[in-house]
Structures are given as structure tokens and as C-alpha cells.
Design a protein around this nucleic acid. Structure first.
Lengths: 250, 250
DNA sequence: CGACAATTTGATCTGTCTCAACTATGGTGG
DNA sequence: CCACCATAGTTGAGACAGATCAAATTGTCG
């Protein structure tokens, strides 16, 4: 565990993607007190039921939110990348209604609730940026409800790939059509409501159709237009500033 | 179309359920400029793709959010009752990524974005209350992802009934175990990711098991504990102040 | 090299969908 | 007040997408 203010840079960078922040705003964010920690892959960060006193900023790596159901099954609710604040809701909702866990080894920066609250009160434009972040989260939830509720297996998996690629691309983490998505097939299943076996067959089908290529955890999108169409993917719900930036892949 | 400030009372009442508002806060909310409108049942209020300039407060009735997918199917994303602000996100997300429609005939109060923004800036505790409202929305989305992703048909339908009952009960709209849920079976299907035919059979099964009784749109919960167990329902995610208030039904 | 996790494949089963028909139910106009 | 029509609910039969179970194969890392 260490203290490193520069870790907050990932946050300002991300917030800047959709929101204009002043120099002062950025400075105020980067002056937040943080407690930084490395967490290994596939470890719980916060468990359902606890009452957090800090927000968690993902500096690098990948994490997910999930719920365990009474029938023993697991549902992944969202994925998060560098610069995300995957439990910002804990500022207002006392008890965690879901768990947070790492996918890959991740660097996490914990920021005391009080500090975030103070910042929000002092700087309306930061409050707006955080609000925007929360609302995009909710928009992605909505799309996921539609994904698991009304799409076929092929559409679901293709849609997940499209979404992750689009978000990573917006963050600058996926420059070409080849990008790393460090998910196991079981995790893709938990995110899309499918069995791991069927995820395997669905990926195979996507490869057979020439839409993607897979080499371990690295995925290559061979035909973005076709993949988009197969998924029924429309990036509008991610509410990025620069729309259709992915379209220029060829 | 008429102007009726008292329509805002439904909002302050609802916000008060989870958040302490001062007399001044309430007065400020109830002084918001509104444009009130009655809308008949099963009509669109706002469509995907538009850029709203007002927020919509549901004064009475019931509305839903939904998405139409490219495969022609519909997914309902949430249900809303009196006092809800079902498109508060439009304050920050320019373009609607889903549509809003009535279930029953509803009274809607439209409040200009500017007025809401001004109120939020002026009154931090109102901002907190609205934020809380948004975050509970998101928490319910999370539960719905799990519902359609990892629950059986019986669990899904039972869970939807549990949720609607719990929320209506918290609003004081469902005093006894009998309550009105004015949904068609096709709508229950669009909310749970099932076909209308299978919803019909699932409701029949719930009746056969002695968990509910149905008379038209009026549902009676015959055995709350059993229904809760069948659904795997845990009301924590609704983040009500008074927990387990429903448990005292017998 | 050995061990454990993840992927892949086959075979079978089943929950849910689709299609189709029939039956309430409720509203409307003659 | 009844005939009519549209909408919602109900039921049956058959099909199929995806689950489950089981085993083999391929990483991958100490």
C-alpha cells in the first residue's frame, strides 16, 4: 500500500473525455487524499452487505461488479476500466447491494467519502462530471438488461465485445482493431446470462463467421461493421462525446 | 394541459421517504414551474433519440422505460410510480437512449431542466435527494440484469411481483396484500425477457402453488414468505429507509 | 515435469419459444 | 340493449436454443 497522487490522473483524464474541466478542477481532483493498493486478479474488493467509507478509483487493470443469487448463480453487472469509479454510488447508498471484484491484477485508489463530498460541494463542475459518470453507468445497465433479456446468444456475446471495444477505444486502450479483453469464457457467460459451454460455441461461431479472431485473451475484430450488425450494437447509450469514432476502423 | 403546483407534492412526499428535507427545501421544490398534462394509457411520452429540455415527474399513474432492439423485440427497463422522476438522467445525458411510455393513464408534470439545475445548485440537500433517487434507479437496474440473466421464469415473474409490491407498499399505495398491478402479460414478458405465452403459464403456476391470486389486474399475495423465497427476493437493493416493513403482512 | 485452470467437443436433455386456435373481456356504435 | 370488434388471456402441440453432464485437450505457471 502506498500513497501516490499521480494515480488520480487516470480519473481526470477519463472525466475529461466527456466533460470540460478547468485547470483548477483538475488540480482539486488530483489533490484528493488517496490510499493506493495493488490487488491480484480475481479477488473481491468490496462484498455485498458492507458499508464502505471510501470510494474506489480504478487506476489500472479491470474490475467487475457482480451479484450472487439465492439459486447459487452469479451475474456480472458491469465491467470497469482504468479511470472508472466503480462504487461511486456508495457515497449515497449506505449498504453495498452487490460485490466488486478484480478481473486482472489492478491498482486501486481509495478516496474517503468525506473528501469526495467536500469536493462535490466546492466544485459544481466536478459534481457534474461525476454525475455524468454515474449516469453513463446507468445507461450501460439499461443496455445490459436489454442484452440479457431480448438478445440471442450470438447477439449477446457480440454486443459485449462491441461495447468493451468501444469503451476501451474511447479510453485510448484499444488503438487498432486488436485489443485485450482478459475475460474467461465463464465470465463472459456470467455477464451475458449464458453457460460457459455455450459461450465457447458462440465464440467459435463468431470466428467461423469471420467477425473476430481470438488468440488467448487477445481479440481481434476482423469485420467491425458485420460484428456491429450481428450484435445490433448502437454506441449511443455509452454517451461518448466523439460519436462513431470506432467506425473508422475498416 | 394545466398548471398545478400542488402536483409537485407527490415528489416531495416520495423524496421524503428516504431523505430528510427541510421545510425550505420542500417549499423550493413545490415552487418549481411545471406544465402538467394527462396522458392516456400505453402512449409514448418521450422517444429514444430525442433531446429533452424538461424533466418529467410522474404525479399519478404508472409508466415504464423501454428499448426497441434491432431484432424487433422490446425490453422494458423499469417501472415507475407516483412521485418518480423517470427521466432525470436527461439533465446530464443529452440524447434519450430509451423511450418512456405510460402503462396506465397518467398525470405528468414537466419541469424545465434549467429550473431543476438552479434548484440543485442552490440546495445541496435537494441535490442529494435527487442523487439518491437516481442511484436507487441504478440499483434496481442491477437487480433486473440479474433477474433476466440468471433466474428461471418462475423466479423472474415472482421477483417482479415482489419488487412492485414492495415499492408500492413503501409509497403507501399497497396497504394490504392485495394491490393493483396494471400490466398485461405481454408487458410482464417484456420486463422479464419471457414470451407472453410463458408468462401466462408461469402466473398459472404461481397460482397453483398458492402464492398469488389474480382477479383481472388486481393481484393478491397469498403467501408473502413463500413468494419471496420462490423469487429469491431480498429488498435490500431498493434501499428503503424502513427495512422489512413488508415482512409484517402474515 | 506435474498440476490446476481454462478451453473445447460430444451427447443428451429441458425450459422456453413459436405457432395456432380458442375463449374471455370490455368498449363502441347501431 | 345487443351485436360487433379489438384486445388480452388461455391452452395445446411441436420445435429449438441453450443448459447440463461428461470427457478430452490445451494452456500456463510454479
Amino acid at each position: 500500500m502506498s500513497v501516490a497522487r499521480s494515480d488520480l490522473h487516470s480519473l481526470t483524464t477519463q472525466l475529461d473525455l466527456v466533460f470540460e474541466l478547468s485547470k483548477d478542477d483538475r488540480a482539486a481532483i488530483e489533490a484528493l487524499p488517496v490510499r493506493t493498493k495493488m490487488v491480484g486478479e480475481r479477488r473481491d474488493i468490496i462484498r455485498e452487505g458492507v458499508v464502505p467509507t471510501e470510494c474506489c478509483l480504478l487506476v489500472s487493470g479491470m474490475v467487475c461488479r457482480y451479484k450472487m443469487l439465492s439459486n447459487g448463480r452469479r451475474q456480472i453487472l458491469s465491467f470497469h476500466f482504468a479511470g472508472d469509479l466503480p462504487d461511486l454510488q456508495s457515497l449515497h447508498l449506505k449498504t453495498m447491494d452487490h460485490s466488486l471484484a478484480t478481473i486482472t491484477e489492478s491498482r486501486l485508489a481509495f478516496i474517503p467519502h468525506d473528501a469526495v463530498r467536500k469536493l462535490i460541494r466546492a466544485r459544481p463542475s466536478v459534481a457534474d462530471a461525476l454525475m455524468h459518470h454515474l449516469l453513463v453507468d446507468a445507461a450501460i445497465y439499461r443496455e445490459w438488461i436489454a442484452n440479457v433479456g431480448r438478445r440471442t446468444a450470438l447477439e449477446r456475446v457480440a454486443h459485449l465485445i462491441c461495447e468493451c471495444f468501444t469503451r476501451l477505444h474511447a479510453l485510448g486502450a484499444a488503438r487498432q482493431a486488436t485489443f485485450e479483453l482478459p475475460l474467461t469464457q465463464a465470465e463472459i457467460g456470467d455477464a451475458t446470462g449464458l453457460s460457459n459451454v455455450h459461450v465457447n460455441r458462440t465464440l467459435k461461431e463468431l470466428r467461423r463467421l469471420g467477425l473476430i479472431a481470438t488468440n488467448g485473451k487477445v481479440h481481434a475484430i476482423l469485420d467491425w461493421e458485420m460484428l456491429r450488425d450481428a450484435a445490433g450494437f448502437d454506441p449511443g447509450y455509452i454517451h461518448l462525446r466523439a460519436k462513431g469514432s470506432v467506425a473508422s476502423l475498416g
